[in-house]
Simulated assay, not measured.
Amino acid sequence: MSDIMSFRSMLISLIILFLCQPAYAQDNLTVYFIYSDLCPHCAQEKSYLKKIESRFPQASIEYVNIGLQKDAAFKLMAQYGLNNSGTPQTYVMDTAFIGFTDETDYLMYSNKHRAFLGNAYSIEYVIEYHSRGVKENVSAYNAVVISTNESLVSGFIHNNPTAYATVNLSEGVYFVGWFNRTRLRKGPPYPNIVALVNASCGQIIDAHYCSSTEPGVVVPSTEPMYSDFIAYIGIFMYLITYLIYSHSRRVREKIKHKISDRQWLIGFIILLAALSVLLVVSHPKHEINYLIKFLGRLMPIYL
């Protein structure tokens, strides 16, 4: 009987040892980058990926122009299960990214798009994970997927299909914080649910609803706001109206009151002031820095 127990213990130990083997570096790592020539964020990421190629020689970037290589682009999207044809999109091993920004420095997953939101930190983190080899056997993407198998998380996602998750690795544990859109926009500054996943073996350690801040969980500073879209459209429509007025004699003849360039400029300043108030008020933390960044995108000289 003791021999049987000893054999069983040894077998269990071997299984655990096998499951917890560290991830090894990839000799050749292919990164697929879907872009459009008309996309400013694509140009920004393309410049960033050039630096990645020099830093990680084993990483080979495959550039896929969606305008010229539509079949290849949609094949990749289907392979990763993405239902969004927007660009840029980046694929590194098992991980998909959509969009690109250099303003965030954390891993954030969109359940709606089945992809992480692309930023310089996240993409480099995943490339480094696969190219250099790390002791964690579970990737950040794996941790998100594993967390969705927990009943609390799966129920939350069912009720909040557009939920987001942040992923943070600390002392061998992935902290996966799930947020619905209301929580992201209005707070409070902690997730709806947090799941803890063992980074070596992928076991769910714990999952619970949150009632206060959670150590180890990354809280996003902001979510892309609809007010941004309104502001861009407002400015665009104003400029289009000005161009039509200034270049169309027929339009000017129909308008009894003549509008001088000075009046157009004053109107534009008033519009910017009104939109500035909208952006600051609608921002979750009412940060003036958010407004400065927005104006910086509009101006040729960054503020």
Rank of each mutant, 00 (worst) to 15 (best):
S2K: 13
D3C: 05
D3P: 03
I4E: 12
M5L: 15
S9F: 09
S13Q: 13
S13E: 11
I16R: 15
L17S: 15
L17V: 10
F18M: 13
C20W: 01
P22I: 05
A25C: 02
D27N: 09
N28W: 03
L29R: 02
T30Q: 13
F33E: 06
S36I: 03
H41R: 14
Q44N: 15
E45I: 03
E45L: 10
Y48P: 04
Y48S: 13
L49V: 03
E53K: 12
R55F: 05
F56N: 08
S60Q: 15
I61Y: 01
G67K: 03
L68F: 08
D71R: 13
A73H: 10
L82D: 02
N84D: 14
S85H: 09
G86P: 00
T87D: 01
P88G: 06
Y91M: 08
A96M: 14
G99C: 09
D102M: 10
D102A: 08
D105V: 11
M108P: 02
K112V: 08
K112R: 15
R114I: 12
A115W: 02
G118W: 07
N119H: 03
Y125T: 08
V126K: 04
E128R: 12
E128F: 00
Y129V: 01
H130M: 00
V138K: 11
S139E: 00
N149W: 07
S151Q: 15
V153G: 04
V153E: 08
S154H: 13
I157K: 05
N159H: 11
N168M: 10
L169P: 13
S170C: 11
W178P: 04
F179C: 02
N180Y: 04
R181I: 12
L184W: 02
G187Y: 06
P191V: 03
N192R: 08
N198V: 08
S200W: 03
C201M: 10
H208P: 07
Y209P: 01
G216M: 14
E223A: 08
M225P: 01
Y226L: 10
Y226W: 12
D228F: 14
I233V: 14
Y238H: 02
L243D: 02
L243K: 07
L243R: 04
L243S: 12
I244D: 04
R249N: 09
R252A: 03
K256G: 14
K258F: 06
K258S: 11
D261E: 08
Q263G: 11
L265S: 09
I266T: 06
G267I: 10
L271P: 01
A273E: 01
A274Q: 04
S276A: 14
V280I: 15
H286F: 15
N289D: 06
L291F: 07
I292F: 10
M299T: 09
Y302A: 01
L303K: 04
